[in-house]
Design a protein around this nucleic acid. Structure first.
Lengths: 146, 146
DNA sequence: TTTAACACGACTGAATCAGTATGCTTGTTA
DNA sequence: TAACAAGCATACTGATTCAGTCGTGTTAAA
């Protein structure tokens, strides 16, 4: 299960992308439209800002805008940013590899072999699907080798 | 990330399957061999027993044995049993469907469309991979449509 | 009848989730 | 230039989950 926070982040980014090139939206505008608790959304947008996905303008008539083009922002990137690694096992994460601790010789580990396939499949989808793909209606549905 | 508990469950089942047809193993035997905290393993085996995957004999010279044939026990089944739904969104779970609450019309939800593909891919792997597949060495690697 | 096994509920300490609350800082505009 | 509206940032909280541990049963074979 992905976290509520990630869902909010994706929906906020989608809202900004749909709103149009470089135009700002108020936090409260996004919060209202996407039904996200205002203060929680504030935190999320700060995270996205620190990661360089969005920018903000302060003061009256400020707000947030998408910094990058929608075709360049993948679901995978956002999920990793908010929820951490996508991999089902720590020893399969590319962004935050950790040894499993309990399995001695890693590349003989039976479980690892199975979950590696799962990890590849998920990455295959999430790292190739962008905000733009979703906005333009039909999510592409290529056959992917697992 | 799958839970530690699921990993232990899978490893315990694999140990029982490898041990041979209908032969029992002591909890402490499994615990020692697979490096699983003994008391924790006790709990896990009880769960597996309640689900009908294993059986136990009490008293002196008791122990646990696998009730079903290794070819019939999938990774997906075990993970659902221990960790709950595999689906990345509650509204995509077949075993424990819940509405997302925040998205109004479910089959227009953009996020849902993307994560449905992820869910199908994961299920495609986990519900077709069995204990036997893993024991006999090579995990099969069929191309799967996503 | 002892002993070595499983059975089962209660408890715990740490971490994570999903937010709230409170008090800044900054920029625009009246 | 002062007030107001916006974002910035930290701290806190209540509920839940994780990963176990503890203690006390109950059962069956030797």
């Amino acid at each position: 299960m992905i976290s509520q926070k990630s869902k909010y982040a994706l929906r906020a980014l989608l809202a900004l992308a749909a709103h149009g090139d470089g135009r700002t939206m108020l936090i409260s505008e996004i919060a209202l439209q996407e039904v996200i608790p205002r203060k929680f959304l504030e935190q999320i947008l700060l995270d996205l800002k620190r990661a360089g996905l969005v920018a903000s303008r302060r003061g009256k008539a400020g707000g947030y805008l998408l910094l990058r083009r929608p075709e360049t922002v993948t679901f995978g990137e956002v999920l990793r940013l908010i929820d951490g690694p996508l991999a089902p096992l720590p020893c399969l994460s590319k962004m935050a590899y950790r040894r499993c601790g309990d399995c001695a010789n890693e590349n003989a580990c039976k479980l690892r072999k199975v979950f590696a396939r799962v990890a590849d499949a998920t990455r295959g989808i999430l790292d190739t699907t962008t905000l733009a793909d979703v906005l333009t209606g039909g999510v592409k549905s290529l056959p992917v080798e697992i």
